[in-house]
Design a protein around this nucleic acid. Structure first.
Lengths: 197, 197
DNA sequence: ACCAAAATGGTACCCACGTACCAATATTTA
DNA sequence: TAAATATTGGTACGTGGGTACCATTTTGGT
């Protein structure tokens, strides 16, 4: 981990994590490079090796930062709609926001593609496995809550089924150059949820 | 394309494509590098730039080669079982062979992971789009035939649905470190096919 | 105030890679 | 067969990137 033991040091370290997180979101794992992170954070190159024992270490911190931030946003969004909305369309959009990111709302392949590149790139980074499992579990939990609140089947198996449906339609849309992968996922999801409330 | 105009030249060019294809299958897009391809083919480095105007050109040729070879194998396998087998288990395995590759049968994450890395890496290589679309269509056609022969629903939409189901469960299995992604896909697929013959 | 530890930042090393160059050969074709 | 064209293969250039080094400077505790 290579922690910092000074307040200022801690701030710098955090700045690096944030910078790395932005780069991750904008360009995927490969965009996290020592020099890019340092420049983005306005810090010298050597600071990246000082606070992180390796690039993987930095990547791990960035992933955790981004993922937790996104989960928190999702939870907040969910809480804002606390008054049980049962409208299927709303539920679908909520789930899509959680699985594809809110950026995917404004169309375009890029944000969705980036996300799936990240997903598929994860197994090659075994050090991310524990973190990813934890975050996946929380995400499933969140979606289960949404389903429960809207009166839909919210069992573990059903949630996993919906995840597969969304991920599968997105992946297929991406490789077929469909300009609207979120739309593809929406259709699958809607069709499924409307017939089994 | 930078074709060859000599028999020997054509053979060398082909050797490079085969080598690149092997590297692609073994290590993904990034494994296709001038030096690696040349070494694998037992040819000098410069031969790779002589026969292919760029690395992308070489990658394209490799993808086409591998994909067509695999499609042909799938078709052959299908024809061998021409006598309409209606057993769901057989159909499921056949579809999994086509979508995940026969290498995935002997367990292990690697071959499946490699395949999905390839899928997700495709959109970043726009020059592959036409080729991929063509091959995807043929693959769907193949699966439709399988379904039809076994008396299952074989409509375009249903096929797309099955693809999404398989791809989605695989992706989820991969990111959850499930050691048997093919098994995960098999369960989803079986469950679906057994209730809607 | 003083010392040890933490932090800083500039620089350098080394490797992998895509690609270009070019003189020497081999192959075609008129 | 001779000129034109295709091929060969060794080498070199330039870039990007991970990581190491190290002389200073700053900070925190006593």
């Amino acid at each position: 981990m290579t922690a910092a033991s000074t307040p200022k040091g801690e701030r710098r370290r955090q700045a690096l994590v944030v910078a790395a997180g932005q780069l991750l979101a904008e360009g995927g794992f490969d965009a996290i490079r020592h020099r890019a992170v340092a420049e983005r954070a306005g810090l010298p190159l050597a600071s990246t090796t000082y606070y992180f024992s390796s690039l993987d270490d930095l990547v791990g911190a960035a992933v955790e930062h981004e993922a937790r931030q996104e989960l928190a946003a999702g939870r907040a969004q969910l809480d804002a709609l606390a008054d049980a909305r049962r409208d299927t369309g709303t539920v679908v959009e909520l789930i899509l926001d959680l699985l594809l990111g809110t950026e995917s709302r404004h169309g375009g392949v890029e944000p969705v593609l980036l996300r799936y590149e990240r997903l598929v790139g994860t197994p090659r980074r075994p050090y991310l496995a524990p973190l990813i499992r934890e975050l996946t579990a929380e995400l499933q939990q969140l979606v289960a809550e949404i389903l429960a609140r809207s009166g839909a089947e919210a069992g573990r198996e059903h949630v996993r089924y919906l995840f597969a449906l969304v991920d599968g339609s997105v992946v297929n849309a991406l490789i077929e150059s469909d300009p609207d992968p979120r739309g593809a996922a929406r259709r699958m999801l809607s069709a499924h949820l409307e017939q089994s409330p």
